[in-house]
Amino acid sequence: MYFFKAIKNFFKARVLLWPVLLLAAIIVSATGASFAFGGLNALALNSLFSSSSNERDSQVVQAVTRVQEIALLTLHIEGVARHESNGEIFGVAVPASEKTTLLQYKFDAKLGIDGSQVKIEPTGPESYRVTVPEFIGIGFQDPVFEDPLESSNALSWLTPPAVQTRMINNILSDENKQKYIAQNVPALQEQTREFYSGIIASIDPKITIDFEFAG
């Protein structure tokens, strides 16, 4: 009598266990039914269980730098990048495995100077010297890249495809910025003279200005 009385008191005290037991009975029943029709059905389990995921990108601004970049020239550039490669076996090129990829592009390249590095110093009562730092590539604007075109030979399947992002990075590289600067130094210097002469002349048109360029 004491044993049955203890069990009765247990279920009275643990009445919250009944929902758990009921859920277990439902799962067992569903699983048993799946086995009865030819094995455990994955869809039956998916109907009982589900999952969810969430992605987050947390960013923190570590520093704020003020820049005084002055755009002096804007170059409109259009071109076609070419990438050639071939398959290799043990370091030896395989004949007829050549693959050529063409990527057509266009963008505006902005060239100028860092205005914070420009020095304006008096050299006399009505004369100033403007010391100009090295010209810089400020950035690329409105880049457009067409879908790449690929030309293949019979065994080109041995050659991995060109990586488009790598081709784009080469087109927009710092090396190309320096090339555009080197090709346009006279125009950049002339534009610099006009820019600062106009500012100083608006203050006093009688001032004489001498320019000194880095490099």
Rank of each mutant, 00 (worst) to 15 (best):
P160C: 00
V64A: 00
I181H: 14
E98I: 09
A33N: 06
I199D: 12
V130N: 14
L149I: 13
V132S: 13
Y105S: 08
Q62M: 02
W18N: 00
V80E: 15
R66Y: 09
A6S: 07
L40R: 01
R56Y: 05
Y2G: 06
P186R: 08
I89D: 01
L158G: 02
I77Q: 14
V64Q: 00
G38T: 10
P133D: 14
G198R: 14
S34Y: 01
Q191D: 11
K177Y: 13
S97F: 13
M167H: 03
A44N: 05
T192I: 14
L43Y: 08
S202I: 09
D147L: 04
F211W: 08
L43K: 08
K12R: 02
G139N: 09
I138A: 06
E194H: 05
N41T: 06
I138Q: 09
A42F: 10
Q164V: 10
K119R: 14
D174G: 09
N9Q: 04
A25Y: 03
E88Y: 03
E121K: 11
N153H: 04
E55A: 05
A6C: 05
I26Y: 07
D108G: 12
V132D: 15
I27E: 08
Q189V: 08
R66L: 04
E126N: 09
I181A: 07
Q68W: 07
G115Y: 15
V67Y: 06
D57C: 00
V20C: 02
E146P: 02
Q141Y: 13
I203A: 05
G38Q: 09
L21D: 00
I89C: 01
E212A: 09
Q189T: 02
N9T: 03
A13G: 02
S52K: 08
A6I: 08
E84L: 10
I120L: 15
E194W: 05
T192A: 06
G139K: 12
I171G: 11
G112Y: 15
R193M: 12
Y128P: 01
T101H: 12
V15W: 13
R82A: 07
Q117T: 11
E134C: 07
A109G: 11
F195G: 11
E212W: 01
I27S: 01
A24H: 00
I168Y: 04
S127N: 11
Y196P: 06
L172C: 03
L21Y: 05
P95K: 10
Q189P: 00
E150W: 03
